[in-house]
Every structure is written in C-alpha cells, then in structure tokens.
C-alpha cells in the first residue's frame, strides 16, 4: 500500500516536471501563447481590483521605507540642489525661448515628442514580477486602447520600458532594468552615444555600453536621453530626447577598458504607478 503511494507520488512528480519542461520548450521565445492571453484576460479585472484595494497598504509600507531612506538621501540631495540651481538659472533663458517657439508651432506636447506622431495613453501599473531576474510590470491599458507591442512607456520622470505583449484590456511592459532590454541613448551635452543595458539585480544601476572610448567629456550628473536613431529604413523604437537617467560614475579607466559608464534611471522603477504608453509612433 505504502509502496503504491510512493510510486504514484513519484509518477505525478515526474509528470509535473516533464510538463514544465515541455511548456518551457514550447513557449520559450514566443511573444505570447493563447493560454497566457486567455488567463491574463480573465485575471486582468481581478488584478485591477486587487491593485486599487491594496494601494493604501502599499502606500503605508512605502512610507516606512521612504522615511528610512530619506535620512541618507538628504545630504546627497542637498549637494544635487546646488548643482541643479546653477543649471536652472542657466536654463531659464532657454526655457523662455522654448515656450515661445512651442507657442508658435502650436504644440502642447513635450519636446521629446514634438516631432513624432506618438499619442500618449495613460495607464496604471497593476502587477509586477516577483523576482529580480525579470523586470516586467502589467498595466491596465491594452490593445483595446490602441497599445501595441514595442510601444515605448514613460513615467513622469523618464523612460520606463517597452510594451512586450498586449491583451484587450492589459499589457505587459518590459522595464529598462530587465536583462532583455537595450536602449540606444546618448549623454547630453557631450553627445556620447551607446546602448543602455541593465545591471541585473540592481535596479538603481544601468550601464551605457559600447561608448566611444576616446571621449573624455562624460561626467557625473550629466543627463542621458534616448538617441532615437533612424537609418536605412529602420528606426529606434524610442523617440529621441526621452530622459532616461543621470550619469553616476564615469571613470576614465572604465571608459577606456570596457567602453561603459554607469547611470541611475530617473524613473523610480520600484514605485511605478501611473505610466504613459506612446502609441502610434512611426516605425519601419
């Protein structure tokens, strides 16, 4: 009797393991299977309800976490404030000029989107992946709202990621901190170009890779924006000029040896709530 039980148990275990491997083999590399779409569509309203219901609890925990962090951040922010104030004074004139020019061409969108045909669709984050190995979030807008695969996603702070799959009322966004992500970007004002890749496990650190090692113009605190290239009939998925992050370290040795610098994303990936999907962009 006991042996029979053990045999049955082992058979079920073997079946489950083989089933998992089969599923992995069948679905790996595909954007989205029918089963996943079905389950995701069924659970999407539930996730939205759970997200809204749990928001006060999330905010409470966030408050504790942020209060804990705030002490250490205070001194760093004070130093940054001095630099930012200097830049703000310098940029005041440019802003005024910019406002006048935008008025002239009757554009009500940000400079990054001014020349593109992107139409922003606002959505709310309703779920997030549990492991640090993958950085994806689910949002409550989908193909029904005009969202398509490969649409860029931004938050109020900067670039967040790219839509990786869509259903009727929801979509999955692969964040720029995910290992599968790569964004072509440039440092401003120096114009040094490269590809942004994540440092898996550390969402506060991104790497601008493949930069020109002969350039010495990159310094800490400089902004990094999407470069939005277009060449020979193909174009970047991101419009040019979207803010991505700021340079946190750019040692000459590392620039020369591994052609890379480090940056911190502007968008707070851990606390994403409202995001905008830039739909309808021209891409070939």
């Amino acid at each position: 009797m006991y042996r029979k039980q053990v045999r049955r148990r082992r058979a079920v275990l073997t079946l489950l393991v083989i089933g998992s491997f089969l599923l992995l083999t069948i679905t790996y590399g595909q954007s989205s299977g029918g089963v996943q779409r079905g389950v995701s569509t069924i659970f999407s309203p539930l996730q939205t309800v759970a997200d809204r219901a749990l928001k006060p609890a999330r905010d409470l925990v966030d408050w504790f976490d942020k209060t804990f962090d705030a002490r250490g951040e205070n001194s760093r922010l004070k130093a940054e404030l001095v630099t930012a104030r200097r830049q703000a004074v310098a940029g005041q004139e440019a802003l005024q000029e910019n406002a006048q020019l935008r008025k002239l061409v009757e554009l009500d969108r940000g400079p990054a989107l001014a020349e593109s045909a992107y139409e922003p669709v606002t959505g709310r984050v309703i779920a997030r992946s549990p492991t640090v190995w993958t950085s994806t979030v689910a949002i409550d807008v989908g193909s029904g709202d005009g969202v398509k695969v490969d649409d860029p996603v931004i938050s109020g702070d900067g670039l967040v990621g790219l839509v990786s799959s869509t259903e009727g009322g929801s979509a999955q966004v692969t964040l720029i901190t995910d290992h599968a992500s790569a964004v072509s970007a440039k440092v401003v004002p120096s114009g040094v170009q490269g590809a942004i890749r994540p440092d898996v496990g550390d969402p506060e650190d991104l790497i601008l890779d493949f930069i020109d090692s002969t350039t010495k113009d990159v310094h800490r605190g400089q902004a990094v924006v999407t470069s939005g290239w277009r060449a020979q009939g193909i174009a970047s998925l991101f419009p040019p000029g979207l803010p991505v992050g700021e340079v946190t370290s750019a040692p000459i040795v590392e620039q020369e040896a591994s052609q890379q610098i480090h940056l911190r994303p502007y968008a707070d990936m851990a606390n994403l709530d409202l995001v905008q999907v830039l739909t309808g962009g021209s891409r070939e």
């Binding site: 389950v39 996730q47 994806t136």
Partner: peptide
Amino acid sequence: FLVDCLLVAPLGGSSLVLI
C-alpha cells in the same frame, strides 16, 4: 503556471522551481 501566465513569461520556468 499562473504567475507565468499573468506575467507572460515563458511557461514552465517558475513551475519547475516551485514544484
């Protein structure tokens, strides 16, 4: 299976570990 479905990740990866 449910986690992989909802996150549109390759099915079976999380299952294998959690089994």
